[in-house]
């Protein structure tokens, strides 16, 4: 016997198998595409064709929804894993020239003697995002904002690449290394706090989140408090406000003190 004897309607097995399969398919298609859509009175379809297309899963763009006005400016930066993924020697060179005016606060080697953030070796996407936010007014600072307003997109990208390229040097305000507090190691799951390192570099880096080792304690504490109070709101879709709000004042202090006491070179290299 050959395939020709099998694939013919004279073969009763073929008839039965194909017939039953087709029948089940037809019944389920009718059930899924016609009966069920209209059996749900709470769903409105324009017509039968709309119902069938929707049941089939034809992708539709969402209808425009009127959202309330934003109160105050929020971040308009779009960050993806390919943001600033390529940097060139020229870009870094241009960035170095531009960076001279940043040196007063952030230090000539990108290490601040004051309580400004250390930028040497910071993830480029972080500097890119914060400069854009300072420029747009999504983040404001009396000293920083005037510097940022006149920067072009190109200049922001060059600065970001330059600082990301600098080696991570020890900070200027060294303190004895503190043991890791629980809030940093474990977060607080039931309050919706993941371990700090799952975004901030030591476990993984969520794009746009800085590494924190060796940064100024006062600076980090102030930022956490500003996120918690809603004073600082340039974190996209509240990703950091959600965390800071759930932290206790004591945890904020512990986290800031811990990170400030860490040498910058122990951040796992993930950029």
């Amino acid at each position: 016997m050959s395939a020709r004897d099998l694939f013919t309607f004279r073969n009763r097995h073929f008839r039965a198998a194909v017939g039953v399969t087709a029948a089940i398919l037809i019944v389920t298609v009718i059930g899924g595409f016609i009966v069920l859509p209209f059996a749900q009175p709470w769903v409105q379809f324009a017509n039968a064709w709309d119902a069938i297309c929707s049941a089939a899963g034809l992708p539709q763009r969402t209808a425009i929804v009127a959202a309330p006005e934003q109160t105050g400016r929020l971040s308009e930066v779009v960050l993806t894993s390919s943001t600033l993924s390529r940097s060139s020697q020229e870009a870094i060179g241009r960035g170095a020239t531009l960076a001279q005016r940043c040196a007063i606060c952030h230090g000539p080697t990108g290490i601040s003697r004051a309580d400004s953030p250390n930028l040497a070796g910071q993830y480029s996407a972080v500097i890119y995002k914060e400069l854009h936010d300072f420029r747009s007014g999504a983040r404001t600072n009396a000293v920083m904002s005037p510097f940022a307003v006149n920067l072009t997109d190109q200049e922001i990208a060059d600065l970001s690449n330059y600082y990301a390229y600098l080696p991570r040097l020890p900070a200027y305000h060294p303190t004895p290394q503190l043991p890791k507090p629980n809030i940093v190691i474990y977060g607080a799951p039931m309050r919706g706090i993941a371990p700090c390192g799952s975004c901030h570099g030591s476990l993984d880096n969520k794009i746009g989140s800085p590494w924190l080792e060796g940064q100024s304690e006062a600076y980090m504490k102030a930022q956490l408090q500003a996120f918690a109070s809603g004073e600082r709101r340039n974190d996209i879709s509240q990703q950091m406000r959600n965390i800071a709000r759930a932290m206790t004042p004591q945890e904020i202090e512990q986290a800031a003190a811990y990170y400030a006491s860490q040498p910058a070179d122990v951040v796992k290299a993930v950029d």
Binding site: L25, T28, G31
Partner: peptide, 14 residues
């Protein structure tokens, strides 16, 4: 969210 309800029903039946 990326699969249509009709196909979900067919697969459920099968």
């Amino acid at each position: 969210p990326q699969v249509g309800a009709g196909f979900k029903f067919i697969h459920s039946a099968f």
